[in-house]
Structure formats: structure tokens, C-alpha cells
Design a protein around this nucleic acid. Structure first.
Lengths: 109, 109
DNA sequence: CCGGATCCCAGTTGATACTG
DNA sequence: CAGTATCAACTGGGATCCGG
């Protein structure tokens, strides 16, 4: 039996996967989160690590993730500016998904 | 310690997550696979289930997934034509990822 | 000098009509 | 029914610019 929609099978209710994708679906999102599982990261560190991302897209994704409560932004009023990004508890709860993707990629990719 | 790159830490080697994303990263991909976990589906069934996808994009994603060995296409020479899409073993191996995403979406989405 | 913001361009996706 | 063709809308890439 198909169970896209858990509670009420109406078109207005999104299934859980759609909810997860509304947070994780953007391009680069998984890779940003993967990086942050290694610890706090600065804007420039992320940019270099995510080889190929444009600053515009990185900025956009970070804002989205912050809005959705997945990451936390901390700015220090230094010169030059220092900004750190870190996972929140909600962000850390994505660990199992990341782990399963990593396992799959290692075995089948 | 960070382990993006499992074996050799050179820029040429993609990490496992990137490999998984190269298969799963396209828009709608997860949702198509989710649908196929419920069993074989025809083109029109997928189109109606994935509320909002255009036939062009659906066609594109299905071809990609077929090329990558995730799904299998079977066409019957009937009039009107009948085409069925189903997960391969490699496709079914994505189950844990889908399951974790579903759990996360249910708890945090 | 770092963290972005802006502008313009290319590639993707969406909407819709149409065909074998 | 299962797609393809066409065009419009959006998203991301790349370079540049700027305030602190």
C-alpha cells in the first residue's frame, strides 16, 4: 500500500518527504550541511570547500537554512569581518539522512 | 575530523555524498522514486501523482534514472501505448535514504 | 581583506499545445 | 497514452563592486 500521505489523504497535505525536500531540496544544500557536520565554518571556508559554488548561491542557501532553523549564523564585529555558521539541533538531526546517503554513494555511486 | 573524501583526498575524487547527489540531486527525483516504491507506475500515473511536474521534466528525469540504472522502463506495443516504470535492485537500495527522509520530515518538517 | 550584494548571462524548469 | 516542441519564467554561475 502506498503511503505518501500519512494522516489525511487530501491534496493539501504534503507527505513527509516533500516536507524534508522543501528544506533540503535546493542545489548544494546537502553539501553545505555535510560540511557543517565537521564543525563551524566561515563563509570563505564553505566557498572553497564547496568547489564550484558561487557566492551568490552560497549566500542564498545559508539564509534559507538559517530561516528554516537548520543552521545558526554568528557574526563578530571584527575587521575584516568574521562570520561563522554552525548546525543547530534541528540541523544535527539530519545526520542519519546524510549517513545513509554517504553509505549509498560509497556502495552504488 | 572531516571525511568528505574517503580514500584519497584529492580534488579529483568526489565524496560519496556528491556521488549520491549526482544521481538523486535533480528536482523531483526523490519524489519519483518514492512513488515507485509503491510499485510499477505508468507515465500518466506519475504525472498525476507528482502534482505539478511538467511532462517534459518527468520525461527527462525518467530517462536520467533509467540511464543511471535506478529504474527500468518497459513498453508494451499496445494501442494506445502502455509504458511501465519500476525500480531496479539499485533503485530499491535507496530505501533507507527515503525512509530516513520520511522520518525526518515527519518529526521536524 | 572578508562577507556578501548586484548585474548579466546561460542552463533548467514550467505551461501548454501538439503528434504518433 | 506517452511523450515531444516551443516559448516563457526562474535558478544558478561568474565577475565585479562595496561597506566595515
Amino acid at each position: 500500500m502506498c503511503t505518501h500521505l500519512e494522516a489525511k489523504d487530501t491534496l493539501e497535505i504534503e507527505c513527509s518527504i516533500e516536507k524534508a525536500l522543501s528544506v533540503l531540496g535546493g542545489k548544494w544544500t546537502f553539501l553545505i550541511i555535510r560540511d557543517l557536520f565537521c564543525g563551524k565554518r566561515r563563509f570563505g571556508e564553505l566557498r572553497r570547500s564547496l568547489c564550484g559554488i558561487s557566492p551568490k548561491t552560497l549566500s542564498l542557501r545559508l539564509k534559507e537554512l538559517e530561516t528554516k532553523g537548520i543552521i545558526e549564523r554568528t557574526a563578530y564585529p571584527t575587521i575584516p569581518p568574521t562570520v561563522e555558521y554552525a548546525l543547530t539541533e534541528k540541523g544535527k538531526s539530519l545526520k542519519k539522512i546524510i549517513k545513509e546517503m554517504k553509505l549509498w554513494g560509497a556502495n552504488w555511486g
